[in-house]
Structure formats: structure tokens, C-alpha cells
Design a protein around this nucleic acid. Sequence first.
DNA 1: TCGATAACTTAACATCGATAACATTCTTGA
DNA 2: TCAAGAATGTTATCGATGTTAAGTTATCGA
Lengths: 215, 215
Amino acid sequence: MKTVAKAKTRTVDRPTYHVGHLDTLLLDAARAMLEEVGPAKLSLRAVSARIGVSPAAAYHHFDSRASLLGHLAAQGFRELAVAVEERAATAAPGSLLREAALAYFRFACRNPCLYQLMFGPEFIGDESAVGLADARTRSFTLVQAVIAKDSGLEPGSGGARSAALAGWVLGHGLASLTIQGRLERPEGLTDDQLVDRALQGFAILFGSSGVSGPA
Amino acid sequence: MKTVAKAKTRTVDRPTYHVGHLDTLLLDAARAMLEEVGPAKLSLRAVSARIGVSPAAAYHHFDSRASLLGHLAAQGFRELAVAVEERAATAAPGSLLREAALAYFRFACRNPCLYQLMFGPEFIGDESAVGLADARTRSFTLVQAVIAKDSGLEPGSGGARSAALAGWVLGHGLASLTIQGRLERPEGLTDDQLVDRALQGFAILFGSSGVSGPA
DNA sequence: TCGATAACTTAACATCGATAACATTCTTGA
DNA sequence: TCAAGAATGTTATCGATGTTAAGTTATCGA
């Protein structure tokens, strides 16, 4: 229905043969479609079609489907980093962990499929080319800095590294479980309340109670 | 190469036409291949071929590829539950959280692709048919019971639920990050040491220090 | 102006999940 | 005992996908 039936020489009617910045066009389209269909169902052909370009065109800008997804994931890591950073910058001392966790969690909830992609197995093998590892490492370093700052630990110390690991595990664990619906979430519970509940749970498990925000 | 070229009536030479228990054969083969190629690349055709059966045969036992993966995931949840349960049963009181976390983490590390499948988006939509939701709920209930038992909380109480949530987040967060290589893991660090490091990090973040095992 | 090159095209291949139509075996009830 | 029919296989085919090869068109520097 949608494809032109029997055009011999031309299947697309575009003003110019060359599109210009097709790479960013592809990335934008893919980003949009990602949240519609999920990482697994995102097809290169569909993305190309959305722009009005042949499937093979994408291969002049990306090595493979995995490579394109890798770029998308790297973009996600950068956005996640700034989201956490912004929130952490304006947080009152002592509530930094909670604020950072909230920012992290909200980013994941607002971009569930992107987050799945970032931490999923979809594009594994194409990390090197993209700066993905860089973006990820920077995110982690940021988390580490934020947490060290709040707990008064010397940055780079063993304690700071452990605490950062814990913070990352906390954020990712909660986000991942929530996004993929593996959590029995009582209905009506807001994102903030869920984060607080988790923090409260950790406080119970690890002994303290007052550290983590409201009752 | 592998398929018989021009046999008209028979392409496979099997003693009997009917295989018998093809469903479990398919599941076993799929389970084995899952750890070889990962959830995304696991094809029904390859699984069938491994058994020596036509691709269409699988559809007499499973509604779809997703359904087969769903069964596999459910199986995973059951195994995970018993792994945690066994370890928890023989743990000294006070170290229950650590032991449960270790069992959880080890299961994930030993069956990385199965774990990815269990918590991934691969088979979403086919949950109802399989008892998958059941298996998952039971796992969660188990975790909740284990944790409540160790912290002296009344099972079913709000605190117990929060603590269970935290425990689940801890286990899944660490396992997920590790499996997917999103963690900068210092080389030579054993599974146990990584778990301990995470626990230590949580102890730092949430105030106490002695709760979680060795220094 | 012209030719090299980059950016796009069509066409094709292999593989995949899925379905339809047919073949064989097992089971069951008279 | 034995045929009817349900189960469980088969082949053939469809439409969609990632990817590559070979041809076409636009751009840009000498």
C-alpha cells in the first residue's frame, strides 16, 4: 500500500538526490521511533523509510544497525549525565543522594526505551567506534563525584568507589526493574514515592534511618 | 551443505517420525543455545535444526518464539528462587542478606543470557500463558520473606516491603550491571568481593557499617 | 569545465518468524 | 481389530529484516 508499485526508475520523489546531514536525520528519526517500538523492533528499513530514503543509504553513515543504536545509546548517556548533574547542582547538601537518584530514575522513566537500549545487549560489539565507552565512563565518574561530595569521602578513595558503585546499583536497579515492569508497583505510587520507598528500604537494611529524605 | 538436496519425500532420517517430548527437547536445546548466542539472536529455526526437526514443528508446541522464550524465563525464575532459598536456609543469622545477595548474583553470573532474558524485553506480551508472572511473583515473595526474617520485620508490613524492594534492587542492579559489562570491574575481583564491595558501599551511604559481612 | 569522490539508488541475498496445506503416526472407541 | 480422527511431523511459501554489490547522481576541487 505504502510503497510505490511499479515505478521503474524512481521510488522516491525528493527535491534533491542528496539529502544532507542524513546521519543526524537518521539518528533523530531512530530516536523518535525507538520510544514507539522499543529497541528490539527498531528496524533500519523503517527508519530510512520514515525519512524517505533507501535502506542502503544508512550504510554510508553507519557501519551497521548496531552502530546506529550505539550512537543513540551514547547520546543517552550524555543526556543522563547532564540530568543528574543539573539536579545535583541545585540540591541541598545531605539530600544529594536522593536528588541524584530521583534525577536518574526520572530520566529512565521518561526515556524507557532509550534507557533499555543503553543498558541492553542490543548493540554490543560496536562500543569502540562510537565513544560509547567514554560517555558511559563519564557518567560513572560523575555519579562517583556527586556521591563522594555528599558523603565527605575523599574522591578516588576505596570508600568513594564503593559508595559510587552502590549508588549506581541503586539507580540502575530501581530504574531497570521499573521500566521493564518487573516490579509490583502499587498503583498510584508516584516516581518520587517509589524512590523514597526504596531509599527507606535501604535505610532499614543498612541500619540508619534519617539519611534519606522525608519519612 | 547440511540439508539433503533433492529428497522428495524425506529430508530427515530419524528412526521415528514422531519425536516424543519435542517440547522439552526444544526447551533444552534453546536453553543451551541461549547461553551461546544470547536472547536476541536465538532463532527458532536454529533450535529446531539442532534437534533435527523442521522449523514449523515448534509451532505445535509453542504459540510463538516469544512463548518459548517465556517458558525459558519462567524456568529461570524458578531456578533463581531455589538458588536463593537454599543459600538462605544454611546462612547464619545476620548474614542472610549477604548470602542471599551472593546466591542471586552467582546465579546471574552463571546464567547471564538466561538472566538477561528473564529481565529483558524479549518475550513481553506472552506472560499470561506461561505462569511466568507466577514464577516471578513467587521469587519476589521469597526475597521478601528472607529479608523480613533477617531484619526482624513483620512480614507483609510496609517496612518489610520497602526492605524487600531494596534487596531486590540491590541484587538486580548489581547483577544487571555486571552481566552487561556496564561496570568498570577491577580485574581479579571475584564475584564475592564485588558483592561485598557493593554492600560496603551501601553501608557507607546509609550509615551503618557492621551489618554486611567481612571488612 | 571536468573528473574524482561522496551520497544516494535499485537489486539481490540470506535469514528470520509465521502460516497453510499435506503426510505420518498414535490413540481411541465401536 | 481396525478405521476415524487427533497429534505431530513435513514441505512450501509469505513478508520483513540486515546487509552487500553495482549502478546513478550530485558536489567540489583543480
